[in-house]
Amino acid sequence: MTTKLKIDGTTYDVTVDEETPLLWVLREYLNLTGTKYGCGVAQCGACTVLLDGKAVRSCATNLKEIGDKEIMTIANKTDPLLKKVQEAWVEEDVPQCGYCQSGQIMNATGLLKANHNPSEKEIVAGMNGNICRCGTYNRIKNAIKKINAGA
């Protein structure tokens, strides 16, 4: 069946079984490969996107759960907060292999949308679902602390 998806300002019609997780629709039906597969079971955060501004695991979000909510991915070019987060990531020299970073950045963006000025404790709690095997956590913390999300 056909589903309408609003992704980063563009509307797509996809014909796909509505039980399919959003992750695979993004990656394979729309070839939006910035959103990553890491575990498939909501354990690693590599697949994180924002649904109406809230971070969700796209590997565990079926199409039918999305309705008319707006999807924001790492490929979004207009969201000013996402841009700030990306800039902070480059500035703090966060990415190593980089594979987890789409998810880290989307999760951090979701966190900062809800809380402009998170404490260290809130950062750790908010980011604990995102695994980085390269261990860039220390840089991630620094990057998030530097972002002025309110301005």
Partner: peptide, 9 residues
Amino acid sequence: EAWAKVTGQ
């Protein structure tokens, strides 16, 4: 490389 990795490219 850094920008490719933070924008999913």
